[in-house]
């Protein structure tokens, strides 16, 4: 019933080939990130425009982020059943939680003089947002996207606990059921490789989008910290190093 016993012999109960599982996994992981990005852009913009909005938004996102995936899935089963949707909704929320602070901090990091210059040149606020603020915030947004994507890819597997909705994660349940550790290896390695490949892809896209930045710039790494931890405390003024 489980077919062969090789790494890539997928038990038939999963109703997918190996590649099919990968496709399924990517779908369940990436749609939430895309959705999270689409939602977080306007939310972040609101937070930038109305500064008072940011602390409560941050508070809410921090609390949402604290809800464990498994708990989140369970709460949703009541409404959306044991389906892909149940897995994808929490992942969307987690992406949101990572992306909103990343974008807000990114947009806020745009120097005041740059904004003033854009205004002086007669940009409308929409033009200013699209042509100045957003491009300059790209490294920060991508740092957030990378963290959101990698964690999303990892979390899809947990969906197998609520009834075979975990794509590559379902191999783990089967490994358990059929006592085939090689299936667990396949699952872990494939998921990790997927995460690394997508991460590398995102880095590549970021470099294409921001040709003005040196590769692996510090600002990008700095932004990745924000993405991991939420917003940092107001940073100390960097020493204005006089050119000597």
């Amino acid at each position: 019933m489980s077919g062969g016993a090789g790494f890539f012999d997928i038990p038939s109960d999963l109703q997918h080939t190996y590649l099919g599982l990968i496709g399924e996994h990517l779908k369940e992981a990436l749609i939430p990130v895309a959705g999270g990005l689409a939602l977080s852009l306007p939310i972040a913009q609101l937070c930038v425009r109305f500064r008072w909005l940011y602390p409560p938004v941050l508070w809410v996102t921090t609390v949402l982020y604290a809800i464990p995936s498994i708990a989140f899935f369970v709460f949703l089963i009541d409404y959306t059943g044991a389906t892909e949707t149940t897995v994808m909704i929490p992942l969307t929320v987690y992406s949101l939680v990572v992306l909103v602070p990343a974008i807000v901090d990114g947009v806020r990091s745009v120097p005041q003089e740059t904004l003033a210059a854009a205004e002086a040149m007669g940009f409308t606020s929409m033009q200013r947002y699209l042509r100045v603020e957003l491009p300059i915030a790209v490294p920060a947004i991508f740092a957030g996207l990378r963290v959101a994507t990698v964690s999303s890819i990892s979390l899809v597997s947990v969906g197998s606990l609520i009834g075979n909705e975990g794509a590559l994660g379902n191999l783990l349940s089967d490994a358990h059921v059929f006592h085939r550790s090689n299936l667990a290896v396949t699952s872990v390695v494939t998921t990790a490789v997927l995460a690394i490949v997508i991460d590398a892809l995102l880095i590549g896209i970021r470099m294409l989008l921001t040709p003005w930045l040196p590769r692996g710039s510090r600002s990008a790494r700095r932004a990745s910290v924000d993405a991991v931890t939420g917003p940092a405390p107001e940073e100390a003024r960097p020493l204005e190093e006089a050119a000597r």
Binding site: V150, S154, V158, L168, L172, S181, A184, V188, I196, D199
Partner: peptide
């Protein structure tokens, strides 16, 4: 950090 983050916790646990 990137490599460690790529490891799926649930999968790792089962393995």
């Amino acid at each position: 950090a990137t490599a460690a983050r790529a490891l799926p916790s649930f999968g790792l646990l089962v393995l």
